[in-house]
Design a protein around this nucleic acid. Structure first.
Lengths: 145, 145
DNA sequence: TATAATATGTCAATATAACTTACCTATAAT
DNA sequence: ATTATAGGTAAGTTATATTGACATATTATA
């Protein structure tokens, strides 16, 4: 096993560099839109998650972002000022707060996402379905490692 | 083409989230070692590149990192204080400064890399060579998109 | 019912990494 | 001689995150 080319240090280093660059590029394409609304990368990530997980709770957002609640709170306050998020208390357990993007928020997300997804979309369009499936598989394994 | 499942917005969102998480996890495994030397993520990235591209010039480092030279300089000064980098002027064009890790630097890199590579190594070990090759292919396309 | 755990919020101080703007030297290329 | 390139630096600022401490409300449990 160990003699496999891609398990050699040089290949691992190369992959790690690519993971970094891939992330950075994927999250920088939409910078102009973020600037337009005077928000940053942290806000983009929260908006992204809110669009994926409608009504997600604060604690689940924290778990996904892996930041402190103080840090998340700063971002949420900015999104409240922008008037793009709404909250609803859980009907059963009222300690839990569910977070949603409102219509304005969804529109801003679409603006961001339109630019951000292009890079991924084009990469996948230029790949076979097997390549895409394998990309996803390995990425999952990296995450769950 | 557009009806392919993985080209739908929901799948693209999912992939983008994974790209973020994959990056974050890949660059957080070695935090304990970084703390030991009182350095951070920015230093880790520079050390990583120095280990990959021995004698890289300042401007090429800047191009790879996509940060300002003021930002890189702060990091390099810390690495100088740690006594792990050395510089050599280009023999032909003396404006160019080549940056190297010295022996101590290489050892510290290995300490960091030992922890960092585990996640990637295990993910690849758990994958077929085709999966790995396709992962690399798609990642390249994302970067060059 | 008393107590513990959970979900969330907030204050204050600090750290990390980056930025902008501006200006500087040295060297190389035209 | 002029311009371009490689690199350095100073001052101030911004973005994102941290730690630690403390607070409130609600739910779960002994």
């Amino acid at each position: 096993m160990k003699e496999l080319l891609y398990l050699k240090d040089d290949q691992l280093k190369d992959l790690i560099e690519k993971i970094f660059v891939g992330y950075r590029e994927t999250f920088s394409d939409s910078k102009k839109i973020l600037d337009k609304y005077s928000i940053g990368l942290a806000h983009q990530k929260v908006i992204h998650l809110l669009s994926m997980y409608e009504g997600i709770s604060i604690s689940k957002l924290l778990a996904k972002l892996k930041v402190t609640k103080q840090s998340l709170n700063r971002v949420l306050k900015d999104l409240i000022k922008l008037e793009i998020v709404v909250f609803k208390k859980d009907e059963i357990d009222t300690r839990i707060k569910h977070v949603y993007l409102n219509e304005k928020g969804k529109k801003i997300f679409e603006e961001i996402f339109l630019l951000q997804k292009k890079r991924i979309y084009n990469a996948l369009l230029d790949s076979s379905s097997e390549e895409v499936i394998n990309f996803d598989k390995v990425l999952k394994k990296i995450i769950n490692g």
